[in-house]
Amino acid sequence: MDAIVLEGVSKHFNSVTAVSDLNLRVSEGALFGLLGPNGAGKTTTLRMILRVLIPDQGAVRIFGEPLSDRAQDLMGYLPEDRGLYPRMKVREILRFLAALKGVTEREADRRARQWLERLELADWAEKKIIDLSKGMQQKVQFIAAVLHRPRLLILDEPFTGLDPLNAQVIKDIMLEMRQQGTTLILSTHRMEQVEMMCDSICLIHQGRKVLDGELAAIKRSYGKNTLRIQYAGNGGFLDLPELIESTNHYGAVVEVKLRPGADPQEILKLAVQRGVRISRFELIEPPLNDIFIEKVSEADA
């Protein structure tokens, strides 16, 4: 079954079109990445799924049903603009938000205790939000999004503002929830996370869908046209316009996009001839980042 179906969904604000005729399917149990540059309409799309905004045209269905109060209770949401009542205590606000989703107060308290324990916030349960650090507030907000055990969890930029340790913890929880059957939507423009976590993606640009499908299939369609090389010495051997379309230097590693039909063996031979020491030479599918940039600039052209 599909967790989310969007059919011809559009949303305008005054003369600005935020989302235009968007069709989208997210199957149940997926870890779905919603990608796009800033201002592409990601947040507007998520808000329409959550019934925070009502589409001007088109239909939204959640687990086969049109949006309703009940469908809303099945969803959990971590908005990009974080914020909680600053003067409420951690436990109270968690209880309140869970109760709004239909969890009894006792059950909410019980689950909150476990979550706070796990995210190392147990000592802060009776503190006011305003007394917490930004990172702690964000963890509380994450708990608020999952406390009612949503079937569909929507996370808008979940890792921004978290240190690597906490980002790791949140990522583990996300994967664990997915294991238990929760459908997750991850909206971000951090490609490496999507690449490592998501199984399907949708790329939107200026309110329109540019690309969607299973991540593996998308990458496969581009073929293994990219070289990842780690080397020491002069990089002049990469000056091969007839073989190489573009290079992308990351410092320690360089990613090289080959021209169609170019033989990577040629490049390796040249490097060896020039005395460059190669410590890694790998033929890979194009990184999502490149696909993203290519698709967005294609759409702009």
């Binding site: 808000r47 959550l50 809303q72 969803m75 949401y77 603009d81 914020g83 909680l84 907000q141």
Partner: peptide
């Protein structure tokens, strides 16, 4: 206050 603390978005994801 609900607006400026950005609390309102979570709330209307749960209530009309």
């Amino acid at each position: 206050e609900e607006k400026s603390t950005r609390m309102v978005e979570i709330l209307i994801a749960s209530i009309r």
